[in-house]
């Protein structure tokens, strides 16, 4: 070794000695070896080899410090593929570590493993029980509970035993079980909101009424049932009458009265404004068919009220004298918020 090795030569020799490492690992390890060796070589006095030993010894030390595997070893196609994927996963992982939330998650994720073992067992037990017991997210009876607890126990036992001790097929099976459990948990989570939602649901089925184009608000659920009427109040507690409600597009907002109520239709034939609240409602008199009810449908015995003609055109109109859309005719429509 008469001519001293340049950093470049030395790095090339180290690379050659580490040729058996997976490409991703090797690149990550040796990324800035050239610069590093140049720095070492910049120290006056000794050659690189005198300072660092042979490139092969350097490579071996590097391998050990990097936590690499011993040199050689079979490199079947499956293994190489596995190494490549794990290398790619690791690269993505390293890149994502730039993001603080991901970094924090990466730190505490290992602590959540026992929780996953429990959840995994629970999900698989419920999936097994599903065909023979009532659907639900908790076991139905005591045998189901016993079975579930046993599966959870097994899952935790497997988790604590660790991957290393499992045989190859055991590992494949475990991976399969984990994947199945992940799918089960995700589907269960996706299912929950659709089965148990009791929130407010607006269905803006645009149902043009006969006289006015408006939006029919159906299924406006509140605590305890459907909304069939609206009683507006001023800030000082004064009940308001004949309040017209419109949606964001200027369409009148209309409610369908409950099945046991109907809108009072004045004698003179002018249909009541469907979006003037509170609606003048009265109990239905048992006539069959909801279809008969409507702005234009006249009951055989309408509650005749000397109502002032109300304009059916939507839009803010000057309110008439008191009692325009008189709720007086409807005994149920007394403007009290506790009705229904």
């Amino acid at each position: 070794m008469t001519p001293p090795m340049t950093p470049h030569d030395y790095a090339a020799a180290v690379r050659a000695a580490l040729a058996d490492l997976p490409a991703g690992d090797r690149d990550a390890l040796l990324e800035d070896l050239d610069e590093h060796l140049a720095e070492v070589a910049a120290e006056p006095g000794m050659s690189l080899e005198e300072r660092l030993g042979s490139p092969e010894a350097y490579a071996a030390e590097l391998r050990a410090a990097y936590g690499g595997r011993p040199p050689g070893g079979g490199s079947s196609r499956g293994r190489r593929l596995r190494e490549r994927t794990s290398g790619a996963v690791r690269r993505v992982h390293t890149r994502l570590l730039v993001l603080p939330p991901y970094r924090q998650a990466a730190v505490f994720a290992p602590e959540l493993r026992p929780a996953w073992w429990v959840l995994r067992g629970y999900a698989i037990a419920l999936a097994v029980l599903a065909p023979i017991s009532a659907p639900g997210l908790i076991p139905g009876d005591i045998p189901a509970w016993v079975f579930t607890l046993a599966v959870v126990w097994g899952s935790v036992w497997l988790g604590r035993r660790g991957r290393a001790q499992a045989s190859r097929w055991g590992r494949v099976l475990l991976l399969g079980a984990n994947l199945v459990a992940v799918v089960l948990v995700i589907t269960a989570m996706a299912d929950v909101p659709s089965t148990s939602s009791r929130g407010v649901a607006f269905d803006y089925g645009p149902r043009p009424e006969i006289h006015t184009l408006g939006v029919q608000v159906e299924n406006v659920s509140a605590f305890g049932g459907e909304v069939t009427n609206i009683f507006p109040y001023a800030a000082d507690g004064t009940p308001l009458h004949d309040v017209r409600l419109y949606d964001q597009d200027g369409n009148p907002i209309m409610l369908e009265p409950g099945f046991d109520q109907e809108i009072v239709i004045p004698c003179d034939g002018e249909p009541p404004i469907r979006n003037a609240y509170p609606l003048p409602l009265r109990p239905a008199d048992g006539r069959p068919g909801r279809a008969a009810r409507g702005p234009a449908a006249r009951g055989p015995e309408p509650a005749c009220t000397p109502a002032t003609p109300a304009s059916p055109t939507p839009g803010p109109t000057t309110p008439g004298p008191t009692g325009t859309a008189t709720p007086t005719a409807s005994p149920t429509a007394s403007p009290s918020p506790s009705s229904e």
Partner: peptide, 17 residues
């Protein structure tokens, strides 16, 4: 302390995030 050990350790710690 070996040069390669330190270099390898740095790369491993970096890889580990």
């Amino acid at each position: 302390v070996g040069d390669a050990s330190v270099y390898g350790t740095l790369r491993r710690l970096f890889k580990a995030g």
